[in-house]
Design a protein around this nucleic acid. Sequence first.
DNA 1: AAAGTGATAACTGTTGACAGTTCGATCGAC
DNA 2: GTCGATCGAACTGTCAACAGTTATCACTTT
Lengths: 221, 221
Amino acid sequence: MPDNLQRGLAVQMVETLRERLLSGRIASGTRINEVELARELNISRGPLREAIRQLVSEGLLVHRPNKGAVVFEAEPGEVEALFELRAALETAAARLAAVRRDRKDITALRRSCERSRKHLAAGRQFVHHNDLDFHRALLEAARSPRITEQVWRVQQQIIVVRSRQDVATSHSDASLTDHEQLAEAIAEGQADRAAELMERHLDRVRLQMITSMTGADTSQD
Amino acid sequence: MPDNLQRGLAVQMVETLRERLLSGRIASGTRINEVELARELNISRGPLREAIRQLVSEGLLVHRPNKGAVVFEAEPGEVEALFELRAALETAAARLAAVRRDRKDITALRRSCERSRKHLAAGRQFVHHNDLDFHRALLEAARSPRITEQVWRVQQQIIVVRSRQDVATSHSDASLTDHEQLAEAIAEGQADRAAELMERHLDRVRLQMITSMTGADTSQD
DNA sequence: AAAGTGATAACTGTTGACAGTTCGATCGAC
DNA sequence: GTCGATCGAACTGTCAACAGTTATCACTTT
Protein backbone atom coordinates (compact mmCIF):
# COMPACT_ATOMS: atom_id res chain seq x y z
CA MET A 1 0.00 0.00 0.00
CA PRO A 2 2.38 2.68 -1.15
CA ASP A 3 0.52 5.90 -0.38
CA ASN A 4 3.85 7.64 -0.69
CA LEU A 5 3.43 11.12 -2.07
CA GLN A 6 6.89 11.69 -3.40
CA ARG A 7 7.74 13.76 -0.32
CA GLY A 8 10.00 12.17 2.26
CA LEU A 9 8.35 10.36 5.13
CA ALA A 10 9.92 12.61 7.73
CA VAL A 11 8.45 15.72 6.11
CA GLN A 12 5.10 13.98 5.90
CA MET A 13 5.24 13.02 9.54
CA VAL A 14 6.07 16.57 10.57
CA GLU A 15 2.84 17.72 8.98
CA THR A 16 0.84 14.85 10.41
CA LEU A 17 2.13 15.43 13.91
CA ARG A 18 1.77 19.18 13.59
CA GLU A 19 -1.89 18.72 12.69
CA ARG A 20 -2.45 16.43 15.65
CA LEU A 21 -0.68 18.82 17.99
CA LEU A 22 -2.57 21.90 16.82
CA SER A 23 -5.94 20.20 16.82
CA GLY A 24 -5.36 19.15 20.40
CA ARG A 25 -5.62 15.49 19.48
CA ILE A 26 -2.31 15.12 21.27
CA ALA A 27 -2.70 17.27 24.34
CA SER A 28 -0.14 19.55 25.93
CA GLY A 29 2.09 17.66 28.35
CA THR A 30 1.61 14.28 26.69
CA ARG A 31 4.65 12.04 26.42
CA ILE A 32 5.53 10.75 22.96
CA ASN A 33 6.19 7.04 22.61
CA GLU A 34 8.33 6.49 19.54
CA VAL A 35 7.65 2.81 18.90
CA GLU A 36 3.95 3.12 19.51
CA LEU A 37 3.58 6.20 17.33
CA ALA A 38 5.75 4.73 14.58
CA ARG A 39 3.52 1.67 14.57
CA GLU A 40 0.37 3.72 14.38
CA LEU A 41 1.75 5.72 11.46
CA ASN A 42 3.09 2.61 9.70
CA ILE A 43 6.62 3.92 9.47
CA SER A 44 9.91 3.10 11.15
CA ARG A 45 11.42 5.11 13.96
CA GLY A 46 14.06 6.82 11.82
CA PRO A 47 11.90 9.33 9.97
CA LEU A 48 9.72 9.73 13.05
CA ARG A 49 12.70 10.74 15.15
CA GLU A 50 13.69 13.27 12.52
CA ALA A 51 10.19 14.70 12.54
CA ILE A 52 10.26 14.89 16.32
CA ARG A 53 13.61 16.64 16.24
CA GLN A 54 12.20 19.29 13.93
CA LEU A 55 9.09 19.83 16.03
CA VAL A 56 11.32 20.18 19.08
CA SER A 57 13.26 22.85 17.25
CA GLU A 58 9.98 24.56 16.40
CA GLY A 59 9.02 24.55 20.06
CA LEU A 60 5.97 22.32 19.79
CA LEU A 61 7.75 19.51 21.62
CA VAL A 62 10.46 19.55 24.24
CA HIS A 63 13.20 16.98 24.47
CA ARG A 64 14.09 15.25 27.73
CA PRO A 65 17.35 13.28 27.44
CA ASN A 66 16.81 9.54 27.58
CA LYS A 67 13.15 10.17 28.26
CA GLY A 68 11.85 11.15 24.89
CA ALA A 69 9.75 14.08 23.85
CA VAL A 70 6.75 15.62 25.55
CA VAL A 71 4.28 18.06 24.08
CA PHE A 72 5.11 21.66 24.93
CA GLU A 73 3.34 23.01 27.96
CA ALA A 74 3.70 26.38 29.58
CA GLU A 75 2.90 27.96 32.88
CA PRO A 76 1.55 31.52 32.95
CA GLY A 77 5.03 33.03 33.17
CA GLU A 78 6.07 31.20 30.01
CA VAL A 79 2.97 32.42 28.24
CA GLU A 80 3.91 35.98 29.15
CA ALA A 81 7.30 35.49 27.53
CA LEU A 82 5.67 33.94 24.49
CA PHE A 83 3.37 36.92 24.02
CA GLU A 84 6.31 39.24 24.45
CA LEU A 85 7.93 37.60 21.46
CA ARG A 86 4.71 37.61 19.50
CA ALA A 87 4.17 41.29 20.25
CA ALA A 88 7.68 42.14 19.07
CA LEU A 89 6.99 40.40 15.77
CA GLU A 90 3.41 41.45 15.15
CA THR A 91 3.76 45.10 16.06
CA ALA A 92 6.54 45.26 13.50
CA ALA A 93 4.32 43.41 11.05
CA ALA A 94 1.51 45.89 11.67
CA ARG A 95 3.88 48.76 10.92
CA LEU A 96 5.03 47.12 7.72
CA ALA A 97 1.49 46.29 6.69
CA ALA A 98 0.43 49.92 7.07
CA VAL A 99 3.23 50.88 4.70
CA ARG A 100 3.19 48.11 2.14
CA ARG A 101 -0.47 47.12 1.86
CA ASP A 102 -2.25 47.45 -1.45
CA ARG A 103 -5.95 47.48 -2.29
CA LYS A 104 -6.29 43.70 -2.21
CA ASP A 105 -4.78 43.50 1.27
CA ILE A 106 -7.19 46.11 2.58
CA THR A 107 -10.23 44.32 1.22
CA ALA A 108 -8.92 41.02 2.60
CA LEU A 109 -8.57 42.53 6.06
CA ARG A 110 -12.04 44.08 5.93
CA ARG A 111 -13.55 40.89 4.61
CA SER A 112 -12.07 38.95 7.49
CA CYS A 113 -13.64 41.37 9.95
CA GLU A 114 -16.99 41.22 8.20
CA ARG A 115 -17.04 37.45 8.29
CA SER A 116 -16.32 37.45 12.00
CA ARG A 117 -18.96 40.13 12.57
CA LYS A 118 -21.55 38.01 10.80
CA HIS A 119 -20.56 34.95 12.78
CA LEU A 120 -21.08 36.96 15.90
CA ALA A 121 -24.40 38.40 14.71
CA ALA A 122 -25.60 34.91 13.95
CA GLY A 123 -25.18 34.13 17.60
CA ARG A 124 -22.07 32.06 17.09
CA GLN A 125 -18.89 32.60 19.04
CA PHE A 126 -15.95 34.54 17.75
CA VAL A 127 -13.76 31.53 17.32
CA HIS A 128 -10.06 31.05 17.08
CA HIS A 129 -10.29 30.40 13.37
CA ASN A 130 -11.57 33.92 12.75
CA ASP A 131 -8.72 35.38 14.75
CA LEU A 132 -6.11 33.41 12.83
CA ASP A 133 -7.61 34.48 9.52
CA PHE A 134 -7.24 38.14 10.34
CA HIS A 135 -3.67 37.84 11.54
CA ARG A 136 -2.82 35.83 8.45
CA ALA A 137 -4.23 38.58 6.25
CA LEU A 138 -2.26 41.17 8.19
CA LEU A 139 0.98 39.25 7.81
CA GLU A 140 0.28 38.84 4.13
CA ALA A 141 0.00 42.61 3.84
CA ALA A 142 3.29 43.08 5.71
CA ARG A 143 5.13 41.21 2.92
CA SER A 144 7.82 39.86 5.22
CA PRO A 145 8.00 36.08 4.88
CA ARG A 146 10.60 35.77 7.63
CA ILE A 147 8.49 37.63 10.18
CA THR A 148 5.40 35.72 9.06
CA GLU A 149 7.21 32.44 9.60
CA GLN A 150 8.25 33.32 13.12
CA VAL A 151 4.83 34.62 14.08
CA TRP A 152 3.33 31.39 12.87
CA ARG A 153 5.73 29.43 15.06
CA VAL A 154 4.81 31.37 18.16
CA GLN A 155 1.13 31.08 17.39
CA GLN A 156 1.53 27.34 17.09
CA GLN A 157 3.00 27.14 20.55
CA ILE A 158 0.20 29.27 21.95
CA ILE A 159 -2.40 27.12 20.22
CA VAL A 160 -0.93 23.97 21.74
CA VAL A 161 -1.00 25.46 25.22
CA ARG A 162 -4.45 26.90 24.64
CA SER A 163 -5.80 23.53 23.54
CA ARG A 164 -6.01 22.57 27.19
CA GLN A 165 -8.49 25.30 27.88
CA ASP A 166 -12.09 25.66 26.92
CA VAL A 167 -12.08 27.10 23.42
CA ALA A 168 -15.33 28.95 24.06
CA THR A 169 -13.70 31.29 26.55
CA SER A 170 -10.65 31.94 24.46
CA HIS A 171 -11.95 35.00 22.63
CA SER A 172 -14.24 37.89 23.22
CA ASP A 173 -16.00 40.47 21.10
CA ALA A 174 -13.37 43.01 22.07
CA SER A 175 -10.85 41.18 19.89
CA LEU A 176 -13.04 41.74 16.87
CA THR A 177 -13.27 45.46 17.60
CA ASP A 178 -9.48 45.52 17.86
CA HIS A 179 -9.26 43.87 14.47
CA GLU A 180 -11.61 46.35 12.88
CA GLN A 181 -9.67 49.30 14.22
CA LEU A 182 -6.42 47.69 13.08
CA ALA A 183 -7.79 47.14 9.60
CA GLU A 184 -8.74 50.82 9.31
CA ALA A 185 -5.41 52.06 10.66
CA ILE A 186 -3.60 49.89 8.12
CA ALA A 187 -5.95 50.99 5.35
CA GLU A 188 -5.13 54.61 6.15
CA GLY A 189 -1.42 53.88 6.33
CA GLN A 190 -1.04 54.91 9.96
CA ALA A 191 1.92 52.79 10.93
CA ASP A 192 2.42 53.99 14.49
CA ARG A 193 -1.25 53.72 15.33
CA ALA A 194 -1.41 50.23 13.84
CA ALA A 195 1.54 49.16 15.97
CA GLU A 196 -0.04 50.59 19.09
CA LEU A 197 -3.37 48.95 18.37
CA MET A 198 -1.65 45.63 17.80
CA GLU A 199 0.20 45.92 21.08
CA ARG A 200 -3.00 46.65 22.98
CA HIS A 201 -4.79 43.87 21.15
CA LEU A 202 -2.17 41.32 22.09
CA ASP A 203 -2.14 42.62 25.66
CA ARG A 204 -5.84 41.94 25.84
CA VAL A 205 -5.58 38.46 24.38
CA ARG A 206 -2.68 37.68 26.67
CA LEU A 207 -4.54 38.73 29.78
CA GLN A 208 -7.56 36.75 28.70
CA MET A 209 -5.44 33.66 28.27
CA ILE A 210 -3.61 34.10 31.55
CA THR A 211 -6.78 34.49 33.56
CA SER A 212 -8.24 31.54 31.73
CA MET A 213 -5.20 29.51 32.73
CA THR A 214 -5.06 30.50 36.37
CA GLY A 215 -8.81 30.64 36.91
CA ALA A 216 -10.32 27.59 35.26
CA ASP A 217 -7.45 25.18 35.07
CA THR A 218 -8.58 22.08 33.26
CA SER A 219 -5.20 20.47 33.67
CA GLN A 220 -6.05 18.02 36.39
CA ASP A 221 -6.32 14.36 35.55
CA MET B 1 38.76 7.16 22.91
CA PRO B 2 35.57 7.59 24.86
CA ASP B 3 34.64 11.12 23.89
CA ASN B 4 31.09 10.33 24.91
CA LEU B 5 29.78 13.03 27.16
CA GLN B 6 26.55 11.58 28.44
CA ARG B 7 24.66 13.85 26.00
CA GLY B 8 23.14 12.20 22.99
CA LEU B 9 25.20 12.08 19.84
CA ALA B 10 22.68 14.06 17.82
CA VAL B 11 22.81 16.94 20.29
CA GLN B 12 26.60 16.81 20.25
CA MET B 13 26.64 16.88 16.47
CA VAL B 14 24.33 19.87 16.39
CA GLU B 15 26.87 21.81 18.41
CA THR B 16 29.81 20.54 16.39
CA LEU B 17 28.19 21.43 13.09
CA ARG B 18 26.96 24.75 14.41
CA GLU B 19 30.51 25.67 15.38
CA ARG B 20 31.81 24.70 11.96
CA LEU B 21 29.07 26.62 10.22
CA LEU B 22 29.51 29.80 12.26
CA SER B 23 33.30 29.74 12.02
CA GLY B 24 33.01 29.51 8.26
CA ARG B 25 34.86 26.20 8.22
CA ILE B 26 31.90 24.95 6.21
CA ALA B 27 31.17 27.80 3.84
CA SER B 28 27.81 29.10 2.72
CA GLY B 29 26.46 27.14 -0.22
CA THR B 30 28.41 23.98 0.54
CA ARG B 31 26.63 20.68 0.02
CA ILE B 32 26.56 18.31 2.96
CA ASN B 33 27.55 14.72 2.29
CA GLU B 34 26.03 12.54 4.98
CA VAL B 35 28.21 9.47 4.69
CA GLU B 36 31.41 11.44 4.41
CA LEU B 37 30.55 13.70 7.32
CA ALA B 38 29.37 10.78 9.45
CA ARG B 39 32.67 9.06 8.80
CA GLU B 40 34.67 12.14 9.71
CA LEU B 41 32.75 12.51 12.95
CA ASN B 42 32.94 8.79 13.77
CA ILE B 43 29.21 8.37 14.10
CA SER B 44 26.50 6.73 12.07
CA ARG B 45 24.12 8.55 9.78
CA GLY B 46 21.14 8.38 12.12
CA PRO B 47 22.14 10.99 14.69
CA LEU B 48 23.78 13.06 11.98
CA ARG B 49 20.53 13.22 10.03
CA GLU B 50 18.72 14.32 13.17
CA ALA B 51 21.28 17.04 13.74
CA ILE B 52 20.92 18.16 10.14
CA ARG B 53 17.14 18.23 10.48
CA GLN B 54 17.45 20.53 13.49
CA LEU B 55 19.91 22.86 11.79
CA VAL B 56 17.57 23.02 8.82
CA SER B 57 14.80 24.05 11.16
CA GLU B 58 17.10 26.70 12.61
CA GLY B 59 17.76 28.04 9.15
CA LEU B 60 21.47 27.31 8.99
CA LEU B 61 20.94 24.61 6.40
CA VAL B 62 18.33 24.20 3.71
CA HIS B 63 16.92 20.88 2.65
CA ARG B 64 16.64 19.86 -1.00
CA PRO B 65 14.55 16.71 -1.46
CA ASN B 66 16.60 13.74 -2.54
CA LYS B 67 19.60 16.03 -2.81
CA GLY B 68 20.54 16.48 0.79
CA ALA B 69 21.28 19.63 2.71
CA VAL B 70 23.26 22.68 1.65
CA VAL B 71 24.56 25.45 3.87
CA PHE B 72 22.24 28.44 3.92
CA GLU B 73 23.11 31.15 1.45
CA ALA B 74 21.26 34.34 0.72
CA GLU B 75 21.11 36.88 -2.03
CA PRO B 76 20.81 40.56 -1.11
CA GLY B 77 17.02 40.42 -1.14
CA GLU B 78 17.03 37.60 1.37
CA VAL B 79 19.40 39.53 3.59
CA GLU B 80 16.98 42.45 3.57
CA ALA B 81 14.23 40.15 4.79
CA LEU B 82 16.54 38.74 7.43
CA PHE B 83 17.36 42.18 8.77
CA GLU B 84 13.70 43.07 8.77
CA LEU B 85 13.11 40.19 11.16
CA ARG B 86 16.13 41.06 13.24
CA ALA B 87 14.99 44.68 13.48
CA ALA B 88 11.54 43.63 14.63
CA LEU B 89 13.09 41.57 17.40
CA GLU B 90 15.92 43.84 18.49
CA THR B 91 13.98 47.10 18.52
CA ALA B 92 11.54 45.40 20.86
CA ALA B 93 14.48 44.12 22.89
CA ALA B 94 15.93 47.64 23.08
CA ARG B 95 12.61 48.93 24.41
CA LEU B 96 12.44 46.20 27.00
CA ALA B 97 16.04 46.74 27.99
CA ALA B 98 15.42 50.44 28.60
CA VAL B 99 12.62 49.50 30.98
CA ARG B 100 13.98 46.45 32.76
CA ARG B 101 17.71 47.11 32.98
CA ASP B 102 19.35 47.31 36.37
CA ARG B 103 22.73 48.69 37.40
CA LYS B 104 24.64 45.58 36.40
CA ASP B 105 23.18 45.63 32.90
CA ILE B 106 24.17 49.26 32.43
CA THR B 107 27.76 48.66 33.48
CA ALA B 108 27.90 45.59 31.25
CA LEU B 109 26.75 47.61 28.26
CA ARG B 110 29.22 50.40 28.97
CA ARG B 111 32.04 47.94 29.55
CA SER B 112 31.38 46.34 26.18
CA CYS B 113 31.60 49.73 24.50
CA GLU B 114 34.80 50.57 26.36
CA ARG B 115 36.46 47.34 25.34
CA SER B 116 35.59 47.98 21.71
CA ARG B 117 36.81 51.57 21.97
CA LYS B 118 40.13 50.39 23.31
CA HIS B 119 40.46 47.81 20.56
CA LEU B 120 39.88 50.56 18.08
CA ALA B 121 42.32 52.92 19.79
CA ALA B 122 44.94 50.20 19.71
CA GLY B 123 44.71 50.28 15.95
CA ARG B 124 42.80 47.04 15.77
CA GLN B 125 39.59 46.63 13.83
CA PHE B 126 36.19 46.75 15.42
CA VAL B 127 35.52 43.09 14.94
CA HIS B 128 32.42 41.02 14.82
CA HIS B 129 33.11 39.62 18.25
CA ASN B 130 32.78 43.07 19.82
CA ASP B 131 29.48 43.62 18.07
CA LEU B 132 28.07 40.32 19.28
CA ASP B 133 29.15 41.07 22.83
CA PHE B 134 27.21 44.29 22.92
CA HIS B 135 24.05 42.82 21.49
CA ARG B 136 24.31 39.95 23.93
CA ALA B 137 24.53 42.38 26.83
CA LEU B 138 21.54 44.28 25.50
CA LEU B 139 19.46 41.12 25.16
CA GLU B 140 20.48 40.14 28.67
CA ALA B 141 19.12 43.46 29.91
CA ALA B 142 15.86 42.93 28.03
CA ARG B 143 15.15 39.82 30.13
CA SER B 144 13.17 38.08 27.42
CA PRO B 145 14.64 34.64 26.77
CA ARG B 146 12.27 33.94 23.91
CA ILE B 147 13.23 37.09 22.03
CA THR B 148 16.90 36.47 22.80
CA GLU B 149 16.65 32.99 21.35
CA GLN B 150 15.13 34.20 18.11
CA VAL B 151 17.61 37.04 17.72
CA TRP B 152 20.40 34.56 18.13
CA ARG B 153 18.96 32.38 15.39
CA VAL B 154 18.78 35.24 12.95
CA GLN B 155 22.27 36.37 13.85
CA GLN B 156 23.52 32.86 13.16
CA GLN B 157 22.07 32.96 9.68
CA ILE B 158 23.61 36.35 9.05
CA ILE B 159 26.97 35.13 10.31
CA VAL B 160 26.89 32.16 7.95
CA VAL B 161 26.14 34.39 4.98
CA ARG B 162 28.68 36.94 6.12
CA SER B 163 31.39 34.29 6.39
CA ARG B 164 31.78 34.50 2.63
CA GLN B 165 32.86 38.09 2.83
CA ASP B 166 35.98 39.69 4.06
CA VAL B 167 35.58 40.03 7.81
CA ALA B 168 37.64 43.20 7.85
CA THR B 169 35.04 45.13 5.90
CA SER B 170 32.16 43.89 7.95
CA HIS B 171 32.15 46.64 10.57
CA SER B 172 32.93 50.30 10.86
CA ASP B 173 33.51 52.76 13.66
CA ALA B 174 30.01 54.09 13.17
CA SER B 175 28.63 50.89 14.68
CA LEU B 176 30.53 51.55 17.87
CA THR B 177 29.11 55.06 18.11
CA ASP B 178 25.65 53.58 17.66
CA HIS B 179 26.35 51.18 20.50
CA GLU B 180 27.49 53.94 22.80
CA GLN B 181 24.39 56.00 22.13
CA LEU B 182 22.22 52.95 22.62
CA ALA B 183 23.88 52.17 25.93
CA GLU B 184 23.18 55.68 27.20
CA ALA B 185 19.58 55.70 26.01
CA ILE B 186 19.01 52.40 27.80
CA ALA B 187 20.81 53.67 30.90
CA GLU B 188 18.47 56.67 30.98
CA GLY B 189 15.42 54.51 30.40
CA GLN B 190 14.45 56.15 27.12
CA ALA B 191 12.62 53.26 25.49
CA ASP B 192 11.47 54.99 22.32
CA ARG B 193 14.85 56.52 21.66
CA ALA B 194 16.57 53.20 22.24
CA ALA B 195 14.25 51.54 19.74
CA GLU B 196 14.88 54.24 17.17
CA LEU B 197 18.64 54.05 17.66
CA MET B 198 18.54 50.31 17.28
CA GLU B 199 16.55 50.58 14.07
CA ARG B 200 19.02 53.05 12.59
CA HIS B 201 21.94 50.95 13.76
CA LEU B 202 20.60 47.86 12.06
CA ASP B 203 19.82 49.87 8.95
CA ARG B 204 23.44 50.91 8.84
CA VAL B 205 24.77 47.40 9.35
CA ARG B 206 22.37 46.06 6.77
CA LEU B 207 23.42 48.57 4.16
CA GLN B 208 27.05 47.86 4.89
CA MET B 209 26.49 44.17 4.37
CA ILE B 210 24.44 44.58 1.21
CA THR B 211 27.04 46.80 -0.43
CA SER B 212 29.73 44.39 0.68
CA MET B 213 27.79 41.59 -0.99
CA THR B 214 27.04 43.30 -4.27
CA GLY B 215 30.36 45.12 -4.51
CA ALA B 216 33.07 42.69 -3.58
CA ASP B 217 31.49 39.34 -4.18
CA THR B 218 33.99 36.66 -3.25
CA SER B 219 31.84 33.94 -4.76
CA GLN B 220 33.68 33.36 -7.98
CA ASP B 221 32.31 31.23 -10.83
C1' DA C 1 5.20 -2.56 57.71
C1' DA C 2 8.45 0.49 55.51
C1' DA C 3 12.56 1.12 53.18
C1' DG C 4 16.17 -0.39 50.48
C1' DT C 5 17.85 -3.39 46.73
C1' DG C 6 18.13 -6.03 42.72
C1' DA C 7 16.06 -7.95 38.52
C1' DT C 8 13.14 -7.27 34.63
C1' DA C 9 10.78 -4.80 31.12
C1' DA C 10 10.11 -0.84 28.25
C1' DC C 11 11.85 2.84 25.87
C1' DT C 12 15.38 5.82 23.88
C1' DG C 13 19.88 6.02 21.45
C1' DT C 14 22.66 4.02 17.86
C1' DT C 15 24.21 1.21 14.13
C1' DG C 16 24.67 -1.15 9.66
C1' DA C 17 22.40 -2.76 5.72
C1' DC C 18 18.89 -2.17 1.88
C1' DA C 19 16.00 0.37 -1.58
C1' DG C 20 15.07 4.21 -4.58
C1' DT C 21 16.53 8.27 -6.95
C1' DT C 22 19.50 11.50 -9.11
C1' DC C 23 23.58 12.96 -11.37
C1' DG C 24 27.42 12.08 -14.32
C1' DA C 25 29.98 9.62 -17.67
C1' DT C 26 30.60 6.84 -21.53
C1' DC C 27 29.22 5.05 -25.78
C1' DG C 28 26.70 5.36 -29.97
C1' DA C 29 24.18 7.62 -33.76
C1' DC C 30 23.54 11.38 -36.80
C1' DG D 1 31.92 16.99 -33.64
C1' DT D 2 27.80 17.27 -31.17
C1' DC D 3 23.63 15.70 -29.30
C1' DG D 4 21.17 11.99 -27.10
C1' DA D 5 20.41 7.75 -24.62
C1' DT D 6 21.71 4.25 -21.56
C1' DC D 7 24.44 2.41 -17.97
C1' DG D 8 26.70 3.05 -13.55
C1' DA D 9 28.20 5.11 -9.34
C1' DA D 10 27.11 7.85 -5.43
C1' DC D 11 24.04 9.67 -2.34
C1' DT D 12 19.68 10.19 0.13
C1' DG D 13 15.62 7.84 2.21
C1' DT D 14 14.12 3.96 4.90
C1' DC D 15 14.08 -0.03 7.74
C1' DA D 16 14.95 -3.60 11.26
C1' DA D 17 17.97 -5.15 14.75
C1' DC D 18 21.24 -4.04 18.76
C1' DA D 19 23.03 -1.54 22.87
C1' DG D 20 22.47 1.37 26.79
C1' DT D 21 19.60 3.58 30.18
C1' DT D 22 15.77 4.44 33.01
C1' DA D 23 11.74 3.19 35.50
C1' DT D 24 8.91 -0.16 37.71
C1' DC D 25 7.95 -3.92 40.63
C1' DA D 26 8.71 -7.65 43.38
C1' DC D 27 11.45 -9.32 47.11
C1' DT D 28 14.26 -9.11 50.97
C1' DT D 29 15.71 -7.11 55.24
C1' DT D 30 15.39 -4.50 59.37
